[in-house]
């Protein structure tokens, strides 16, 4: 990880206090362009809190978040999203009564004050229509285009959530436990999808518990435990790191 290349995402010295509790303690991490980076660690280690700080839901007590070298720390969430960070959620959060198609359409980037947003999208913004159709094809969701997203099987809901996230045309995609609760085939589908997304130019930061999945997929890993970064490195380095083994085995008992 030598720093010739400008990182897509840098989080530097992030500390987050809740009351007197230190949920994150001086966390630093970076994601390079077209890199897949994982954050692992036991429950309550602060993984999702890290995501929340990066996406602006939480203001860090100290530290800075930079996207392509530009500070976005604690900006309003929608500005961070527009700057190029999209995410999915651990417990899938889709829009109640929207169809799959509407999910893709609503997330298409639009400038703030244009007549386009006020007229029927079909005529006013055929470009957004076409982009949404591309994503629909790309994520193999064309069959369920007009179904209410929340009525679909779990695995497909995950795809819809990812589809919505990439509809916002991010540079960096945050995936919070993308294969939680999936069987092996479904998880493998998602793994291939993530690789394709990476090849299309996205940087990806993901959280997961499934060690095999993470080890197979990620270029680089960070290990969190009780809000502290206890290790980082390539998967083969992490696999043999005694500190990591201790943290995991210690918690397992």
């Amino acid at each position: 990880m030598t720093g010739k290349q400008q990182p897509r995402l840098e989080a530097a010295g992030i500390t987050k206090m809740f009351g007197g509790i230190r949920a994150l303690n001086d966390i630093s991490l970076e994601v390079l362009p077209k890199q897949i980076v994982g954050i692992i660690g036991p429950n309550g280690a602060g993984k999702t809190t890290t995501f929340n700080v990066i996406t602006g839901a939480y203001r860090p007590s100290t530290g800075e978040v930079r996207l392509d070298g530009k500070a976005v720390t604690a900006e309003p969430s929608h500005l961070i999203a527009r700057a190029g960070i999209s995410r999915t959620f651990q417990n899938i959060r889709l829009f109640g009564d929207m169809t799959v198609w509407e999910h893709l359409l609503v997330a298409q980037p639009h400038s703030d004050f244009t007549l386009r947003r006020l007229l029927p999208t079909r005529w006013a913004d055929p470009q957004a229509f076409r982009r949404a159709e591309e994503i629909l094809e790309f994520l193999k969701l064309a069959d369920v285009k007009d179904r209410i997203a929340r009525s679909l099987p779990y695995g497909i809901q995950r795809r819809v959530e990812i589809a919505r996230a990439i509809s916002a045309r991010p540079k960096l995609l945050l995936l919070d436990e993308p294969v939680a609760g999936m069987n092996h085939d479904e998880a493998d589908d998602i793994r291939r999808l993530i690789l394709t997304l990476r090849d299309s130019g996205l940087s990806i930061l993901l959280i997961d518990h499934d060690m095999a999945f993470v080890m197979n997929l990620c270029d680089y890993l960070y290990v969190l435990d009780f809000g502290v970064m206890i290790a980082q490195g390539r998967p083969d380095q992490i696999r043999s790191n005694p500190v990591v083994l201790d943290a995991y085995l210690g918690h397992a008992t």
Partner: peptide
């Protein structure tokens, strides 16, 4: 409608 259904998720796709 997105804002009605889930404000947080709506903000995080740039709304």
């Amino acid at each position: 409608r997105a804002v009605r259904d889930d404000e947080t998720a709506a903000a995080l796709v740039g709304l």
